[in-house]
Write a protein that binds this DNA or RNA. Structure first.
Lengths: 242, 242
DNA sequence: GCCATTTAACTAACCAGTTAGTTAGTTTAA
DNA sequence: TTAAACTAACTAACTGGTTAGTTAAATGGC
């Protein structure tokens, strides 16, 4: 990547659309961000190496500072990218006009699918959630308030609405949301360990689909009174591996 | 600590009980391990600083290498200590002669209480579960097979037994265990973030008790057919703060 | 019971490798 | 000719680990 000096031959300054250099600059920037997300997800901020990110993006180390100032800011942008995408995705579902039952299941499914879509998301999410060490995290407040709180508040409201209308059992709404997020994130973030404990690969398409069904069953069983706890809606379940 | 050259006056080589020096050596070793657990839990293995551990334990940095060779081994011992304690604690419960319903609730409660007992446990657990980066983890296999698998297998067996006897609903046993662990660990490991999102301290005695009740309710609602999903058994809920 | 010797516990100072970040300069499109 | 995009080489600070030594108990010979 970014060794791309081909395709620069087609020199046509047709209006609209940014000039080639600018577009390529944006591409390099994106390549760096992508490499950074992977590195931070795998190693954590302390374990991540700027040079490893540069190598993975196919650029010189100094370019990272050219585009992102320093490590902490690069990490911050990686975080923003992931959480903004997550937030956008699930808010979209939460704004749909659906009855509470369908909506909470759709939310749970969308959240699951987002997390399942890439192995780096859950790790990045989990890592930031835990970061309150010696130096604290300069990003936690921003992430929490800008991206997570709106989602959290909406889901809690949805649960309250469902309970008020008698469609849901009486539960502790805040804690239920946390449980839901926990079930989705933890499965993937702890997949390496679970592979050892259960002696099988938890990330095959089949196992991911099973996991989704299991989570949906817990949600349904906890939320919906008496019977009717079957988990219809298998939905998409990407990322096959073995 | 370990500047302790008082109490060395009482020089009595009475048989039984190791000599004073040896006992004190064991104490400093333990102090180092304790400090290491805290540091690793807060910073991760890459972020942890050997000197910070030494300072917290009140000893010279070289002593860490004297007792534990290198960073990786020190981390390994910290891990062993936590997972061994956890495993012992919950296996004790799982070996009690109880009907499936009571036993699964007792297990869930014991696991919760262990995690809740110290802020460093869930972080250490979660951190190791995620560690599969560039260097992998030399400990994951050992931890998984020695400490986690026995517990996992027993809980799965317990669930199967409960389902076979018709006392439990039909669920995906493996996935249910993962969900249970997820709900307990995630709440505490992501407490710093949840404090921001929910705008309140999740670690007061009251909130911890609420959390426990909420988890128990999910377990009961998912596992026990129809009604009877009330979460009796509040049990201990330590660590008040704020 | 005394003293020389050994040994375990512990430390100050140091070293070598690593790493985030900088600088001075080159290339290339506009 | 200008400026943005990009790089090779460098630096200052940090950090895991070592070393050479100190202190004070334990040990053994007499």
């Amino acid at each position: 990547m970014a060794t791309a000096n081909k395709a620069r031959v087609a020199r046509r300054p047709l209006r609209k659309g940014p000039p080639a250099v600018q577009r390529e600059a944006a591409e390099t920037r994106a390549a760096i961000l992508q490499a950074a997300m992977r590195e931070f997800a795998e190693e954590g901020i302390a374990g991540a190496r700027m040079e490893a990110i540069a190598d993975a993006a196919g650029v010189n180390k100094a370019l990272l500072h050219y585009y992102f100032d320093d490590k902490e800011r690069l990490y911050g942008e990686a975080l923003d990218h992931v959480f903004a995408t997550l937030s956008r995705r699930v808010l979209q579902v939460l704004e749909r006009d659906l009855p509470p039952r369908e909506k909470i299941m759709a939310y749970a499914g969308a959240h699951f699918d987002f997390i399942a879509a890439s192995p780096i998301y859950p790790r990045l999410v989990q890592r930031e959630m835990m970061r309150a060490g010696r130096h604290g995290s300069p990003h936690m407040r921003r992430i929490g308030e800008r991206y997570l709180r709106p989602v959290f508040a909406r889901v809690v409201a949805l649960l309250r609405q469902g309970m008020a209308s008698g469609q849901f059992r009486q539960v502790d709404a805040e804690n239920f949301v946390v449980s839901l997020i926990a079930m989705n994130v933890f499965y993937f973030s702890s997949a390496p360990m679970m592979a050892i404990v259960s002696r099988r690969n938890p990330l095959t398409a089949q196992r991911i689909a099973d996991r989704k069904a299991a989570v949906m069953d817990v949600v349904a069983a906890t939320l919906f009174p008496s019977g009717a706890a079957a988990a219809k809606d298998a939905g998409p379940a990407r990322r096959a591996s073995k």
